[in-house]
Amino acid sequence: DSWHDTVDGIELELHGADEELLKLAKELLKRGVSEEEVRRIIEELLK
Rank of each mutant, 00 (worst) to 15 (best):
L45S: 02
E19F: 12
E11V: 13
T6P: 09
T6Y: 10
S34K: 08
I41T: 03
A25L: 05
A25E: 01
S34D: 06
D8P: 11
G16W: 11
E44W: 15
E19L: 11
I42Q: 00
E43P: 00
I42L: 06
I41C: 01
I10K: 09
I10S: 10
V33H: 14
V7W: 14
G32C: 02
V38R: 01
L14R: 03
R39L: 09
A17R: 06
A17Y: 12
V7P: 11
E20C: 04
D1C: 02
K30E: 12
V38C: 02
E43G: 13
E27D: 08
D5T: 11
I42A: 01
S34V: 03
E27M: 15
V7Q: 09
E11M: 14
G32M: 02
D1A: 10
I42F: 03
K26W: 15
E19S: 10
R39W: 15
I10M: 14
K23Y: 07
D18E: 06
H4D: 11
H4I: 13
E20S: 14
S34G: 07
E44R: 10
E36K: 09
I42H: 00
K47E: 05
K26E: 09
K23N: 08
E36H: 12
R31P: 01
I41M: 05
E43V: 12
L24V: 04
S2P: 11
E27F: 10
K26Y: 13
E13W: 10
K47L: 12
V7L: 09
E37D: 09
D8Y: 02
G32V: 01
D8H: 14
E11D: 13
E36F: 15
L22E: 03
E11A: 10
L28K: 00
I42D: 00
H15T: 09
E36S: 11
L14E: 04
W3F: 12
A25N: 00
E35P: 15
K23G: 02
K47V: 08
E20W: 15
E20D: 07
I42G: 00
L21M: 10
G16K: 03
L22K: 05
I10G: 07
L21G: 01
V38F: 03
L29T: 01
E36T: 12
G16F: 10
I41E: 01
W3K: 08
E43D: 08
A17D: 05
L45D: 00
E35R: 15
L22G: 02
E36V: 11
V33G: 02
I42Y: 01
L14H: 05
R39S: 04
E44P: 03
E37G: 04
E20Q: 13
L46K: 05
A25P: 00
L46M: 13
A17K: 08
R31Y: 06
I41H: 03
K23H: 04
L21D: 00
R31V: 04
L14C: 04
L45E: 02
S34T: 09
E11I: 15
G16E: 08
D5H: 05
L46R: 09
L22H: 05
L22W: 14
E19A: 15
K26T: 05
E44M: 14
E27G: 05
L28S: 00
L21W: 05
D18I: 07
I10F: 14
L14T: 05
L14A: 05
L46A: 04
E44N: 07
L12P: 05
K30V: 08
G32P: 01
L45V: 04
R39K: 08
W3H: 12
G32R: 02
A25G: 02
G16S: 06
E13L: 07
E44T: 12
E27K: 14
L24M: 07
L14G: 04
K26V: 09
E44C: 13
L28Y: 03
E35T: 11
L22I: 10
L14K: 04
K23I: 06
E20K: 14
S2L: 11
G9A: 12
V7E: 08
D18W: 11
L24W: 09
L45F: 08
E11S: 14
E35I: 15
L24C: 04
L21R: 01
